[in-house]
């Protein structure tokens, strides 16, 4: 299979600090890629670089063979790479439906009017919030705010979905449901990159994992492979000098 999204030597420096150092990985269609590693290892930064939240210092990112390295965030979103945020970000002055509609109106496929409403309603149903479109986002429970954010992302019908710790903070029942939801995305033909700490989810969801420590890729493979890798265990247990 050819790569849908690929990173080559992607590096990000903040002043003297190298947050992401020469990252290389590919992700193909129909795949869930887990980006894992200890806190501060550069996972979220990598996601931010892919989505164009801030500029890449050096290296190249391409989508379907086209370079997207220096595109602005909105242009990356338009090409079908959509993301959630580590701390859920909803639009506080709007209803649940309007929040989701934002994705439908401005995402990869753009709808307007009744069509956009229909797309937004369908997405709400998909994430299990059917009939709650009229609520204000301030009234929602934590898990429901996460659902709304995912629905907004999906409403733009993106090819690549970037999830930044989307499963964090869910209880076991919610977690199971979340895993089912993400697996459903892959089955629809979407590609998912998730930054995650929940090991159970990584084992059952990911087709492949990239493990980061101190900004560098230290392992890549199936979840079973990487989780038994000596370097990975060292990085997580923290007896390494830079962990």
């Amino acid at each position: 299979m050819t790569a849908l999204l690929s990173l080559r030597g992607v590096t990000k420096r903040f002043g003297g600090l190298v947050a992401v150092n020469r990252m290389d990985f590919d992700v193909t269609e129909h795949q869930v890629l887990g980006l894992i590693g200890p806190n501060g290892s550069g996972k979220s930064t990598t996601l931010n670089l892919i989505s164009g939240a801030f500029p890449v210092t050096s290296g190249a990112i391409s989508l379907r063979g086209q370079p997207i390295t220096h595109l602005a965030a909105q242009d990356i979103a338009r090409r079908g790479v959509a993301r959630t945020f580590q701390l859920v970000r909803l639009l506080p002055s709007m209803t649940v439906l309007q929040n989701v509609k934002a994705g439908a109106v401005f995402g990869h496929r753009r709808h307007w009017g009744h069509e956009a409403d229909a797309v937004a309603e369908a997405m709400l149903e998909k994430v299990g919030l059917a009939g709650r479109g009229h609520m204000m986002v301030g009234q929602l429970t934590y898990i429901d705010t996460k659902r709304v954010e995912l629905a907004r992302v999906l409403a733009g019908e993106p090819g690549v979905v970037l999830l930044d710790e989307w499963l964090a903070g869910l209880n076991p029942t919610e977690l199971e449901e979340g895993i089912r939801l993400i697996r459903g995305l892959r089955d629809e033909g979407r590609t998912v990159i998730l930054v995650e700490h929940v090991m159970d989810a990584i084992r059952s969801l990911c087709d492949r994992c990239v493990v980061m420590a101190a900004g560098t890729k230290i392992a890549e493979g199936t979840p079973a492979e990487v989780l038994s890798d000596a370097a990975v265990i060292r990085a997580y247990l923290g007896d390494d000098d830079d962990a």
Binding site: A53, A72, A73, Q74, F85, R89, L90, G103, H108
Partner: peptide
Amino acid sequence: RIIGDDEAVARHSGI
């Protein structure tokens, strides 16, 4: 309206 609420969300939504 989206920009007024959260500019980062607006950009990452494709605006």
